[in-house]
Amino acid sequence: MPISKAVDTLHTVETPEGALLQIAVAGPVIRGMAWLIDGTIRTVILFILGMIAGGTADGADNGYAFFGIFLIAQFLLNWFYSTAFEAMTGTTPGKKAFGLWVVHDNATPITLSGALIRNFLRVVDSLPFFYMVGLTCMMFDNRFRRLGDLAAGTLVIYRDQAATPSTFSHQVSSPPPEWLSREQRQSIVDFAERSSNLSAERQMELASVLSHLIEDNEDPVHTLKSWAQWILRGQSDAQSAGI
């Protein structure tokens, strides 16, 4: 456990209600890819606007009016594209494509002021080229925060996949040994719940790891599943549920 804790990107945030939220922070590579998508979107918008501006310019006095709008659009995209998206939706289109999300470091949704700080400071993070300052800063921070994130108090995290309810059930229910620890019981249940995604051979392989726990060694998979059934649903429910 200590080793995996040290290298894990999971961080625990305690809410005022005492709930422990697990958040997984995102590293530089995936954030870089999200940034590339956002950059592409901005470039395409500017390209289209530029084409329109070029098409409407006729050399007369008002010919360049649209270029003024182009310049304003460029300014807004440059400074407020990420700011506006993050303040309104908590993510940008590029980040969303990778399931990334921006939150404050207490896991609350990002505010306008937070979004503004972290995106304005991109100017410094991107110095001298390719976000070198930001990358260096991220290397020295255990939550991959660049300068903008540090100043704004924000994290870029993975949004969890929706957890799917378990559909596990087993015909036979039998009591596991009394001396199993809580973690062991939980592992057995996890095994049973995941078994629908595993091949029969793989199930056998995993179950045989526990062969020293199981007295009747003929079908360890069956034994483990019937224990899991007992742990989850008790003695008699399997029959009454009519499975």
Binding site: A163, T164, S166, E183, Q186
Partner: peptide, 9 residues
């Protein structure tokens, strides 16, 4: 120590 499927949900 309920199952992870439940606690994750």
């Amino acid at each position: 120590g309920y199952s992870h499927a439940l606690t994750n949900r």
